[in-house]
Design a protein around this nucleic acid. Structure first.
Length: 783
RNA sequence: GGACGAUUAGCUCAGUCGGUUAGAGCACUACGUUGACAUCGUAGAGGUCACUGGUUCGAUUCCAGUAUCGUCCACCA
């Protein structure tokens, strides 16, 4: 073996080797049990890649390598998420594009171009840190395969009556100019103003109502008071005359009005919030006023405020109210405002026509399916449950955007009938393709295409199916879906995980995967979330260049399930040290192994130290399995670390030196036999975490024994209960420590021989000999 | 407002169904170059386990409450 391990050269070498040899290729002809992963397809338009990405993608990778060695036929595909609003926003920002000044075709081309660059960035990074995906099984969410499945999903749900189209008030982003869904919202706590506005009543009285949205005044539909509220009892059924606009609206009785809030009078507008929409369904005689246009400006229905943006209109109206002496007072208050998470714009409620998937009526079933999943860690299930319980909107899947999967829908120009394509013709683009038959209702042949595209989650929610169907054989597809594992970050439980559960429930009445492993996100060294704005991250490529991929992966094992992890360069250094230590220890051991013919020793030829290290190895294997089986790779690594550094290097290697350098052939053979076995096992225990250095050492020597093409195809070390517990030897270890302490206290070098060491322990001659030889004591005396 | 989690050495964190003296890494101090390795080893210093009660023979661990921090959820006009 070389004196030094040149990680740069060797890591590149093994990367190429693994790819050329197809080490991670899924084996369709194998009979082994399948372990399939629903790999998160990253948004290729993500910001710059950083350590957080390494951390979150490594976690499944560690497990996958373990499962592969445990004898599973691992299916580990890779996807790239490159459609939808995130990509559009990214392209718009990067090229400073105004969507209204560019053709749809040009824009989509730009997006496609950009997604290619993004995918390559990711692929380069995954490759460099040795993520063991099967690169022959990849997809991009905008490709034909995914478009076909997304459209099939639409048709299937339409047939099953889970999809409907409706003109209704929806959550609307006035900046992105599209409908959005509840999952796209972000709640923002803000300081806001509470305006107390005076109105007249048609019997000449007065009343005051409070609102945070005075600008909605021209769209007022009515007011409500609590029927038990003595102050307002007489007003029920009368009309209020609003200031400025002088509209007259009815005053209704509503039991859910809290008399203690504001003035006890609520005014409802179209639409200032979800409660306004709910109120309207209970009071269908009230007339909504649609004065807000899709661009966030008031239209002519707002009267003199037409043409103003919402915030400007608010200022103007408050000003006018003051002048009209209709503003009683203004209070400060804390308020939760919903914004669009992609752009931060305040969300509005606008009446438009959109496609929806019914999820509200399935809440109970969705909760049930969520409970059928095995969550790691378990408390993350709570996030799913609270999300499902808090659902208020059906899933709006229409986006008035360009870059996404089109709806497979035309409308008959004559009668408005919805026209769908045949499944076999998918994917279709209704703007360029035409229906194969005339309208079934009126026989007209004139159609109008649905111009909207689908929410990006319409595709992402199918990833377990997309992954499975990359394999042609339908029998195998059935084994790949549901997936064994969904690894993902906690932030997208309410989107990716939730929507995937919805799809599997409706399409197959199943769960999409059995296990869920949740990761946290990467934090900088001060504990702040890594963000582009703060520039508080390092380029992972630089780390790989400086310390090696194994070292970076070592750092990534520090993340606990579901927990955030700080960036810590010390941990990387520790990883690098571990790599070096493995190299040096192996170099030492293999040097002897190569020059000797080692035979299997009889049990009585093994010495206490050999049996002890074997026992420790078995217990380490047991712990590692338990931890890996529970997705606790971090604990597994700690276990191997302790065994390798302390038991193996600090003790065992020191213990056998006198034997391997000595002349007792039997003792030497036993030591070399055991050290070979243990080192080989250590490499395998480390292989899921440090794939490069373990492969290097394996190929240097152990391959000749195991005959596997790669350590990553070798089998996980067997647990065997051969020699029992080594309690007796633990007693001797204490004496070893005592002698070392004694030497240190006396200022004597550990390697220096001392004439005698006295102990109260009663020792057998063989034990005395062991201490004398390993600790360099001329005579050990039992008192 | 509701839920969940965290609080352990100077720093970052472990702590495996409650049990002698609470651990690791880094940093710090002292010593040591020994036939794989100074990218090392040995020894040491450093903690009222956030606080208050309760259960128990015994609590860092279980229960209740308090404080601080974090996250998720939440239509209150």
């Amino acid at each position: 073996m070389q004196k030094k391990y040149d990680f740069k050269e060797r890591e590149e070498h093994w990367r190429n080797f693994w790819e050329e040899e197809g080490i991670y290729r899924f084996d369709e002809s194998s009979n082994k049990p399948i372990y399939s992963v629903d790999t998160p397809p990253p948004y290729v338009s993500a910001e710059h890649l950083h350590a957080g990405h390494i951390m979150s993608y490594s976690q499944a990778e560690f497990i996958v390598r373990y499962k592969r060695m445990k004898g599973f036929n691992v299916y580990y595909p890779m996807g790239f998420d490159d459609n939808g609003l995130p990509t559009e926003r990214f392209v718009e920002k990067k090229y400073n594009i105004d969507k209204s000044k560019i053709s749809r075709k040009e824009f989509v081309e730009k997006c496609l171009e950009e997604t290619k660059i993004g995918a390559k960035n990711y692929q380069d990074l995954w490759r460099s840190i040795g993520i063991s995906v099967d690169w022959s099984k990849t997809y991009s969410t905008i490709n034909q395969h995914c478009q076909r499945l997304s459209q099939w999903s639409f048709l299937d749900l339409y047939k099953k009556d889970k999809i409907y189209r409706k003109e209704a008030p929806v959550l609307w982003c006035t900046h992105c100019q599209t409908a959005i869904s509840q999952a796209d919202l972000e709640a923002e706590e803000r300081k806001s103003k509470f305006y107390f506005i005076k109105a007249k009543t048609d019997d000449g009285g007065e009343l005051t109502f409070a609102t945070t949205r005075p600008e909605m005044l021209p769209a007022c539909m009515g007011m409500s008071v609590n029927p038990t509220d003595k102050r307002y009892k007489d007003l029920i059924g009368k009309k209020a005359i609003l200031p400025l606009t002088k509209q007259k609206v009815y005053i209704y009785a509503d039991e859910n009005v809290d008399p203690k809030m504001g003035t006890g009078v609520v005014y409802y507008c179209s639409f200032g919030g979800h409660d306004d929409i709910e109120w309207l369904t209970e009071h269908p005689d009230a007339k909504p006023v649609h004065m807000l246009d899709t661009d966030g400006k008031f239209n002519e229905k707002a009267g003199k405020y037409a043409g103003l943006k919402i915030c400007d209109a608010r200022e103007k109206i408050v000003e006018d109210l003051k002048r009209a002496d209709a503003l009683e007072k203004v209070e400060d208050r804390e308020n939760v405002t919903f914004t669009h998470e992609r752009c931060g714009t305040d969300v509005e409620y606008i009446m438009t026509k959109n496609w929806f998937i019914d999820i509200l009526s399935a809440k109970e079933e969705l909760l049930k399916k969520g409970r059928e999943l095995s969550w790691y860690p378990t408390n993350m299930k709570q996030l799913y449950e609270s999300w499902v319980e808090g659902l208020k909107w059906d899933w709006c899947i229409s986006r008035q955007r360009y870059y996404g999967v089109p709806f497979p829908v035309w409308y008959c120009k004559k009668c408005g009938e919805v026209i769908l394509p045949d499944e076999k013709d998918l994917p279709v683009d209704p703007t360029s393709d035409m229906p194969q038959r005339p309208c079934p209702k009126c026989k007209s042949t004139e159609f109008e295409a649905e111009n909207d595209v689908m929410d990006t989650w319409m595709t992402s929610s199918l990833t377990p199916k997309i992954g499975a169907t990359l394999v042609q054989d339908e029998k195998i597809q059935g084994k790949l879906y549901p997936s064994s594992l969904r690894p993902q970050a906690f932030e997208i439980i309410r989107t990716w995980l939730f929507y995937t559960v919805v799809k599997s429930l409706y399409h197959d009445n199943s769960v999409p995967f059995t296990d869920v492993m949740i990761s946290g996100h990467g934090l900088d060294e001060h504990g702040r979330k890594i963000s582009k704005r703060l520039k508080n991250y390092v380029n992972p490529h630089d780390i790989v260049e400086q310390y090696g991929a194994d070292a970076l992966r070592y750092w990534a094992t520090g993340a606990t399930l579901g927990g955030n992890m700080r960036w810590n360069e010390e941990e990387i250094k520790k990883g690098k040290k571990t790599v070096t230590k493995l190299w040096n220890a192996s170099k030492f051991v293999i040097g002897f192994l190569e020059s000797e013919n080692i035979e299997n020793p009889a049990e009585n030829e093994l010495e206490d130290a050999d049996k002890w290290i074997h026992d420790r190895l078995m217990s380490t294997i047991g712990y590692c399995e338990r931890y890996f089986d529970n997705y606790e790779y971090s604990k597994a690594r700690n276990e191997v670390d302790g065994f390798f550094w302390n038991d193996f290097c600090d003790y065992y290697l020191e213990f056998i030196k006198y034997r391997v350098y000595g002349n007792n052939k039997q003792s030497k053979n036993a030591a070399l036999y055991m050290v070979s076995k243990v080192l080989s096992s250590i490499l395998k225990l480390y292989a899921p975490i440090l794939p490069f250095i373990t492969e290097e050492i394996y190929q240097n020597y152990f391959k000749n024994i195991d005959k596997d093409k790669s350590i990553h195809l070798a089998s996980w070390p067997e647990k065997e209960d051969l020699y029992g517990k080594s309690k007796e030897f633990e007693r001797i270890l204490k004496l070893v420590d005592q002698i070392r302490t004694h030497k240190t206290k006396q200022g004597i070098s550990i390697g220096k021989e001392i004439p005698e060491y006295k102990t109260k322990e009663k020792l057998a001659d063989s034990q005395k000999e062991f201490l004398e030889k390993t600790q360099r004591v001329e005579k050990v005396i039992s008192l």
